[in-house]
């Protein structure tokens, strides 16, 4: 019975809750990359901003950091989205007119700068020690109902964002962003303001990532400058989207849950490994830790294989209503057939 409760807890608080947060993240990335072809290498930065803004605005007074605003949690989440959006707007304004490589460099840069600020502005963020005791929605419910209610909130958020993105995808706006993605020059020639549409898409995606950050702070009840490994987080979101099927909202959600399940299950497996094993007479120490890193390596390999062999993903993009563009994968912006 106890074991069953353990499994239930794992499914609720890891698979569905964390999987849901990644699904939100992946949907945000799908707008930027899948819809519009913008490469964001600083996803972790937008998550961090969302998480910190949420934590600071919703917590009660604390001596170590800025705070004590005690705002209602939904307001905190909205503020998280707004601040992430503002930062995305600023960075997008600068590089969106250049080729996507520059945006990639700039986003990885802004993520690094944000990390520096969060680490060093101790008066506001408590520096490297981070902010603990973050308020979580439905904490006042008895266990396990609080966790379940929180999970349901996240899944509902995923559903709402999914439905909104599906509408956006079918709308003229969505058709335009894909047109820009697939052939920037002809969209420009048709008199479309390419920069504005790209900027909108980048900002909306970043706001969604900020929301994912707000949820992440709640799950962890803590947020610190190094509480997520920036490259791994950013990377996981990318693998999820590309494997699931970029340009396809359902693919984004599926990819997120699927890869998160694999990711967290393998984490459990590495914990079972013995401390030391002997390979060809050589003792290898720290096996569980090494396996954790091997896992990161393998996820990188998965990305490369998917990119080369199955670039359309599990659920490939289906674009109705654009004549002559059928069978395109969302992954190859700019390729003309």
């Amino acid at each position: 019975m106890e074991e069953l409760a353990g499994y239930g807890n794992y499914i609720v608080s890891s698979l569905l809750t964390m999987g849901g947060i990644y699904a939100i993240l992946t949907l945000g990335l799908n707008i930027q990359w899948g819809f519009t072809g913008l490469f964001n290498a600083g996803i972790a930065g937008f998550i961090a901003v969302g998480a910190y803004v949420f934590a600071i605005l919703t917590k009660g007074p604390a001596a170590e950091h800025l705070g004590g605003y005690d705002l209602p949690l939904p307001l905190g989440a909205i503020a998280a989205m707004i601040v992430a959006a503002i930062i995305a707007w600023a960075i997008g304004k600068i590089c969106i007119r250049l080729r996507s490589d520059y945006l990639a460099i700039a986003t990885i840069g802004i993520a690094e700068i944000l990390r520096l600020i969060l680490k060093n502005e101790t008066w506001a963020t408590n520096g490297p020690r981070g902010i603990s005791g973050v308020d979580k929605a439905f904490e006042w419910l008895p266990r396990p109902w609080g966790d379940i209610a929180f999970m349901v909130t996240i899944l509902l958020t995923v559903l709402v964002i999914y439905l909104l993105l599906e509408r956006a995808w079918r709308s003229p706006w969505g058709r335009l962003t894909t047109a820009i993605r697939d052939n920037e020059d002809s969209a420009r020639a048709a008199g479309k303001d390419v920069e504005t549409f790209r900027l909108q898409s980048f900002v909306i995606g970043a706001a969604i990532m900020g929301l994912a950050g707000a949820y992440l702070a709640q799950v962890q009840k803590f947020i610190g400058p190094d509480s997520t490994d920036p490259t791994t987080t950013t990377f996981l979101a990318w693998v999820m989207l590309i494997a699931g099927g970029s340009g396809n909202n359902r693919g984004a959600v599926l990819g997120a849950f699927l890869l998160w399940t694999v990711w967290s299950a393998t984490q459990i497996v590495t914990g079972w490994l013995p401390q030391e094993i002997i390979v060809f007479g050589h003792p290898i120490e720290n096996v569980p830790v090494r396996s954790t890193y091997l896992r990161i390596f393998l996820i990188g390999l998965v990305l490369q294989i998917v990119l080369q062999r199955y670039s359309a993903g599990i659920l490939p993009e289906t674009r109705p209503a654009v004549a002559g563009k059928s069978g395109k994968t969302g992954l190859e912006p700019g390729r003309t057939t």
Partner: peptide, 18 residues
């Protein structure tokens, strides 16, 4: 499109480091 190469290099970055 070159962005595919950027993504591949991004993946390599993580692979080499891990």
């Amino acid at each position: 499109p070159t962005i595919m190469l950027v993504i591949a290099s991004f993946g390599l970055m993580l692979m080499i480091r891990s």
